[in-house]
Nucleic acid binder design. Structure first.
Length: 881
RNA sequence: GAGCACUUAGCUCAGCUGGUUAGAGCGUUCCCUUGACGUGGGAAAGGUCACAGGUUCGAAUCCUGUAGUGCUCACCA
């Protein structure tokens, strides 16, 4: 009943306590607190305690959990400990994810490349087995990290997404979904990551601001000029529009005539990084007898006088639409290239060979005559016929208002093409998976994209098809989230999941409140995502992961035929290739086992989210615990994977279990670095968890996560906060020491039989009242997922109420009254002293319990010294809340 | 371009459904060393709660607008 002297040093206690919890298997749901043993199966089934379950989100198995993961664990653990103390039978199940694309990427980069090996020189099975071993080795460390933060999960049930049982369940789902018509194979446009040589999902694509060449080229009319001239009027006084990088500015748009007689258009051009200070072509005025290129004049945007100067030289009218900068139009008289044709802007001239149509906005009066027609155009000296379509996806104010439709090499174009299949399809693919132009481009075949672009620029110039090149065009190119390689949209045959009814089901779960999302504001984010869901490309050309349970009766290859269409061919007999029919069971079957000799398994693996989306039920099915624990109670996750993961778990659960996977979703915010910035290596503000734990203690780290934080809110993990809670731990330690010191005279029975209602002194009555009130509040906070409030109250109430006020006032009953010289003038009233001591131990016990979910180590350590009363357990873990 | 947040002390942030002198930590200044704790105690300075309107007996809190910041989604061919 006494604590060691001196301040609290977490290093002396945390490990011992952790070992005790782990060795006694206290984290397991089978642990029975009355006997301190694990229950048998029969005892378990008879156990009437309500069950509570939380499946931990599996972090990447290959790495150590990062600060954000650890923060999540702190939250999960606080909930689990609270529930356990409230008498629930708690299952918290940890796991690790194989992290398909990213995992393979890291392995290739960090292990293979360092050994000078190349994946494609390796045998697939060897690669897989080597990688599995590497993963499993790394998993150990991750597990330790989870334990040291105090996560009270059942580590005997640590589960890996590639555990055989889990694989079975996940593949079963694939087959079931295929049979339900929700999984299909088709040729679609995909985001091709050339580095990883795989397609990636839409949300695995990032955008990167770059500077590109923007080519204005002309499809010259292949038909009589007179016909085209009839829409000349429509062009009069209309201007082509330019790329404007920043919107919302109010600077006017100008058009007029210079005193010299030159026609001028001045228009907003603004670039945050550079103020254009030399003339450059940014656009083209369309017309038949007045052709211009637009050139930026050297005017500093911030220089009002200069702007005035330009304004004074021209007649202008205002348009609210285009802000900033100044662009002047110069006559390019005598250049044939500007006459009689469609002028189209593009950053990707090499895809011109794959054009199947030209499109404009249906409301664009300028092109009304052409809509729905076929037009003959000449390009590089050849005349071809091309469809002219109208679609609302085309922005008539961008460029010349014309868009070339290249369904094989652009997501947007692909979608437009789906709406105009007759005119735009079949798509023509002119770029191969090696990112070189293919046989359909004639003399360009074999060139890389860059080479082709350069050559085309010259050739277009030669044939009069090149109108202008904007060399400083700012655009965003797509890059792969993981490999950072530029994405090439390509056609490829892929497996897709049609969400079908499960999408509606998941929406209903949230709408009907069966799944509550914390914070509420994230609900909107969820709906927004769900309503805009498109079919999900689930196959990945990787080796690491779940290989598709799909079999082909013969080798399969993807070809681009002479018309540029992507097709899959199957070798039904040696040397005899026919087109693969997706619905022909003699060609393709979906099942887990190989159908027989001669059948070849699909090379692809499943997207990682396909398996992690099944995590809650896959894990419980593995351990045959579905009846007891499904649906689970809470899911804790970073808000950034609400869409990718949370929504998919709900949809998979709707399919497989016809119910929600969890009742509450607690979304944690981003943990920012000590300087309040997003953590990144380059900023040097990364937090070393090991060091933090060593310097400040695990309890302090946990408190720093909780304190004043709310669901979904990002926050900085600062040294100030850590220090604050290190001090707090010390305060708890010392206050406990004081209380324990004062109850040494008390009989154990007196504590056991204490009736706080019988307290006579105002001071003790007040203390009891205050503690009871606080407990009510903390309970409510935890149940409402307001951990920030709970820890805030605990901190200030314990320190500034209990320590600063209550203990100090009660001291007058404990110590004899003395005069200035230290002579006792009034002896201690023994019954008052006893009551004061009882009140102190009462309050301390309550505080320890309330603090335990947040600061488990120190509270457990002190609890060991607390005299136990009825209903207590040796460990705070199982002591009654 | 659309949606969602946010703007409170020098800094980092709490303030939950509107209610008496707006809070914490750190930092600053001053005081206090014999019994739990200097990793402590006491006190002080510092905020017209972004701005402008409105609702109300009463607003940091609700509504509208403005400005700025952040995030997410879509996207410029």
């Amino acid at each position: 009943m006494a604590l060691p002297k001196g301040g609290y040093n977490h290093k002396d206690h945390e490990e011992i306590i952790l070992r005790k919890w782990l060795e006694q298997k206290m984290y397991k749901p089978e642990y029975y607190p009355l006997t301190n043993t694990l229950q048998t199966e029969a005892e378990e089934t008879n156990d009437k305690r309500p069950r509570w379950c939380l499946i931990c989100p599996p972090p990447n198995a290959y790495g150590r959990p990062h600060v954000g993961n650890i923060s999540g664990y702190a939250y999960m653990d606080a909930m689990a400990r609270f529930q356990r103390m409230n008498g629930k039978k708690v299952l918290m199940l940890p796991g690790k994810d194989h992290a398909g694309l990213e995992g393979e990427g890291v392995y290739v980069r960090e292990v293979l490349e360092k050994q000078g090996k190349n994946k494609f020189d390796m045998n697939r099975d060897d690669f897989y087995n080597d990688m599995m071993e590497w993963m499993k080795n790394n998993m150990e460390q991750a597990l330790k990290d989870e334990q040291t933060i105090g996560l009270s999960a059942d580590f005997d049930r640590n589960t890996f997404t590639l555990d055989p049982d889990i694989v079975e369940i996940v593949l079963d789902t694939f087959v079931e979904m295929y049979n339900a018509g929700m999984i299909y194979k088709g040729v679609r446009i995909v985001n091709w990551d050339p580095k990883a040589r795989t397609a990636v999902a839409d949300n695995q694509v990032e955008y990167k601001e770059t500077q590109s060449n923007f080519y204005y080229f002309k499809y010259a009319f292949g038909e009589p000029v007179s016909k085209a001239l009839s829409w000349k009027e429509n062009f009069h006084n209309k201007i082509v529009n330019f790329k404007v990088t920043k919107k919302n500015s109010k600077f006017p748009y100008l058009q007029g005539v210079l005193p010299t007689g030159e026609k001028v258009i001045a228009c907003g051009y603004q670039n945050e990084k550079e103020t254009p200070n030399q003339g450059r072509v940014v656009g083209v005025r369309l017309g038949f007898d007045e052709n211009y290129a637009l050139v930026v004049v050297p005017v500093d945007l911030s220089d009002k006088n200069k702007i005035e100067e330009v304004l004074s030289k021209i007649n202008f009218f205002e348009s609210q639409k285009y802000p900033g900068g100044h662009v002047v139009m110069f006559d390019l008289e005598g250049d044939d290239a500007f006459k009689n044709g469609f002028i189209i802007g593009t950053v990707r001239p090499e895809t011109i060979f794959a054009d199947t149509a030209i499109a404009c906005n249906p409301k664009d009066e300028r092109y009304k005559k052409f809509m729905g027609k076929k037009v003959k155009v000449s390009f590089l000296g050849k005349v071809k016929e091309i469809s002219f379509i109208a679609d609302y996806a085309v922005d008539k104010d961008f460029g010349t208002g014309l868009l070339k439709i290249t369904p094989a090499h652009s997501q947007v174009d692909w979608e437009i093409a789906q709406r105009h299949p007759e005119q735009c399809l079949p798509a023509i693919q002119v770029i191969g998976y090696d990112l070189r132009l293919n046989h359909l481009t004639g003399e360009y075949a074999g060139l890389t994209i860059k080479e082709a672009r350069e050559r085309l620029e010259l050739d277009m110039q030669k044939h009069g098809n090149l109108v202008a090149v904007d060399k400083a065009y700012q655009n965003k190119i797509q890059i792969a989230e993981r490999t950072k390689a530029p994405i090439e949209p390509l056609l490829s045959s892929q497996w897709y999941l049609k969400y079908d009814y499960i999408k509606e089901e998941a929406i209903k779960m949230v709408k009907e409140g069966r799944v509550k999302i914390h914070p509420k504001s994230m609900k909107k984010k969820f709906y927004h995502w769900m309503y805009n869901l498109r079919d999900w490309a689930i196959s990945r050309s990787l080796w690491w992961g779940y290989r598709l349970p799909v079999w082909y009766h013969g080798k399969v290859k993807e070809i681009i035929d002479d018309s540029g269409q992507v097709k899959e061919m199957i070798e039904i007999k040696p040397g005899e290739w026919v087109e693969l029919e997706y619905d022909n069971p003699e060609h393709l079957r979906v099942q887990k086992e190989c159908p027989g000799p001669g059948w070849v398994q699909d090379d692809n693996v499943l997207d990682t989210w396909f398996s992690s989306g099944q995590w809650p039920f896959a894990t419980l099915m593995k351990y045959k615990l579905m009846d007891q624990y499904y649906p689970t109670d809470v899911m804790v996750s970073g808000y950034d994977i609400l869409e990718n993961w949370i929504s998919r778990m709900m949809m998979f659960s709707a399919f497989k279990c016809a119910q929600e996977p969890f009742k509450d979703v607690y979304l944690t915010g981003l943990v920012k670095g000590t300087d309040g910035q997003k953590m990144s290596k380059s900023r040097g503000n990364l937090i070393d968890i090991d060091k933090v734990r060593e310097d400040y203690g695990t309890d302090a780290l946990r408190m720093a996560y909780f304190y004043q934080n709310s669901a979904g809110a990002s926050y900085a993990l600062t040294y100030d906060k850590l220090k604050m809670f290190k001090h707090f731990a010390n305060k708890i330690w010392n206050a406990s020491k004081f209380v324990l010191m004062n109850i040494e005279d008390l009989d154990k029975n007196e504590i056991n039989q204490m009736q706080t209602e019988d307290f006579k002194l105002n001071e003790t009555k007040e203390l009891v009242k205050q503690v009871k009130f606080l407990k009510k509040k903390i309970t409510k906070n935890i149940l409402e997922f307001q951990f920030g409030h709970a820890t805030d109250s605990l901190y200030s109430e314990f320190w500034h109420d209990f320590c600063d006020i209550r203990i100090e006032t009660l001291k007058k009953f404990i110590y004899p009254k003395k005069d200035e010289n230290g002579n006792v003038i009034e002896d201690v009233n023994l019954s008052h002293k006893k009551e004061a001591s009882l009140a102190l131990i009462y309050a301390l016990r309550e505080y320890l319990k309330m603090l335990h979910p947040f600061m488990p180590f120190i509270t457990e350590r002190i609890w060991q010294e607390i005299p136990k009363i009825e209903g207590d357990h040796d460990s705070l873990l199982y002591s009654k809340w």
